[in-house]
């Protein structure tokens, strides 16, 4: 999912970086000092969760979880994901330096969109509906990320179109797995710790008595 240095064209890199800076700016504005430890610990948890490898066919996939991050953090997903990508680039050599902006945008923007589109869905009365909305959020955000990665490649030159198409096709199974995992995680969080999804206690009492 990460693009390496040198592959993308200048305009794509620059516009990606500008938009990512905007997103991180909004995220930082919405993040008050009170919540710093919480977001820091959560972004560590997401970092850890993203190195869970699930077997799939001959290979294995690792989770991105940007849907769940978006549902939990909203705009703050931008700075949290920037930190995660920076740490990955610097200490694992995964991704790159000049593409940090594009990569952040590609992963964090879908997270923010999911926050706005699926937040109502996961507060639904029925568990089943909520899990399905969680699944839509989880799968949808990865699908969107894939489309954006393919788009950044395709915008960088016609020669990348085939690579972009392969990226799209290769990620279909990942989207499915991600949808199931996020749906179940939402289901559990609703029951165990609704305030995680910014659901109030009155909601919990009404729902689970």
């Amino acid at each position: 999912m990460h693009i390496v240095d040198g592959a993308l064209s200048g305009p794509v890199l620059i516009s990606g970086a500008v938009l990512a800076v905007l997103g991180v700016g909004i995220g930082l504005k919405k993040l008050d000092a009170e919540r710093l430890p919480q977001v820091g610990v959560l972004s560590a948890a997401f970092f850890v969760a993203s190195y869970i490898h699930l077997p799939l066919g001959f290979s294995s996939v690792h989770l991105i979880l940007n849907g769940l991050i978006g549902l939990a953090l909203g705009w703050v997903a931008f700075p949290a994901l920037l930190i995660a990508l920076l740490l990955q680039a610097v200490f694992f050599g995964f991704g790159g330096f000049s593409v940090l902006g594009v990569n952040t945008l590609n992963i964090a923007l879908p997270a923010v969109l999911v926050f706005y589109l699926c937040r109502r869905g996961i507060t639904a009365y029925s568990d089943r509906t909520a899990a399905i909305w969680g699944g839509i959020g989880g799968g949808g955000s990865v699908a969107l990320t894939t489309v954006m990665v393919a788009g950044s490649l395709a915008l960088s030159g016609q020669a990348f179109w085939a690579a972009a198409q392969i990226t799209l096709i290769a990620h279909i199974p990942v989207i499915l797995v991600e949808a199931f995992v996020t749906g179940s995680a939402v289901l559990l969080l609703r029951k165990v710790k609704p305030e995680f999804l910014q659901l109030s206690e009155t909601w919990q009492e009404q729902r689970y008595g």
Binding site: V48, L54, L63, L68, V177, F180, V181, S184, A185, L187
Partner: peptide, 13 residues
């Protein structure tokens, strides 16, 4: 996938 979803949920909690 369900078990891993619960695992991640519990990790977050």
């Amino acid at each position: 996938w369900r078990a891993i979803g619960y695992l991640i949920g519990m990790l977050l909690v």
